[in-house]
Amino acid sequence: MIAFILRRLAQAVLVMLTVAFIAFAMFNFVGDPINNMVGQDTSLQDREALRQSLGLNDPLVLRFGRFVANAAQGEFGVSFRLAEPVSRLILNALPATMELAIVAALLAVIFGVMLGVYTGLYPNRWLSRFFLTISLIGVSLPTFLIGILLILVFAVLLGLLPSFGRGEVVRIGWWSTGFLTWSGIKALILPSITLGLFQMTLIMRLVRSEMLEVMRTDYIKFARARGLTNRAINFGHALKNTLVPVITITGLQLGAIIAFAIITETVFQWPGMGLLFIQSVQFADIPVMAAYLILVAVIFVVINLIVDLLYFAVDPRLRIDGGRSGH
């Protein structure tokens, strides 16, 4: 178990170094960083002096090492566009994205699993077919369209919910939260539905097909033959056996929700990392883009590690400790 975690951590470090190298390459080879910093009338000597003082003439390995060391301390330089430290920009945008992503993920998991179990247990019911048809829409409609439709119906036509922004936020330390005000919660509803809908339908379809499969297994048949109640069979025996693939996909989708909140954040002008990233791309604000890239990689790596550990919690066959014995 410990060996497994250590092995996974070593892999994570490798992944992070690779991502860091890509970010570093972006920094150094997409245009000339000096050009980005100085005015047009700076002399060649001054440019060379600046290059020297910034250490840009050092060997590649040394510069990469310096980049990694800085990144590890959360130091990504200064934004070209806003002339503010990147770390502060990210830190300001992080809470908005995290809150949006968490609410969207909760919606996706709770409703996805519930609907998946229902449609898996009663595949022939009218309501199941209805959910499946609806889920097709969720899978096939692009996120921005769903967002715009929701804005049209609930913000423009009905005027119930705000169409953009986070509403009022409360600051707790460096974290700004929208959970504590009514307008903050109202502002969360539409973006989180937009962001979570695709994942919800995905999880629902996955749980459904897993349930259908598990219900056909011998141990479910035997559980019925033992006279267990339907509740014990459906939720105790069947659902638990569907969890391993569901955890995998949900974990990966959680990463995707955080990383690709870009579109939803753009549609709803949500002041999170996605919006920050899109604006940085427009201005070729490379330090911000590099930091975003690394942060997303960290999130994916951490989630994957948690998913792997959850397998051990769910499936005893993966725990090697208990001795196997013959007859």
């Binding site: 297994t217 011998d218 559980a223 033959a225 033992r226 006279g227 267990l228 109640t229 056996n241 005893p316």
Partner: peptide, 25 residues
């Protein structure tokens, strides 16, 4: 009928390898 199954009529199936739920002791 569920109350009868297991209580009055027990059942044993062909394949013991798949008759037990792998996730429970």
């Amino acid at each position: 009928l569920r109350r009868i199954r297991g209580r009055q009529i027990g059942a044993i199936f062909q394949d013991p390898l798949t008759s037990l739920n792998p996730l429970y002791r």
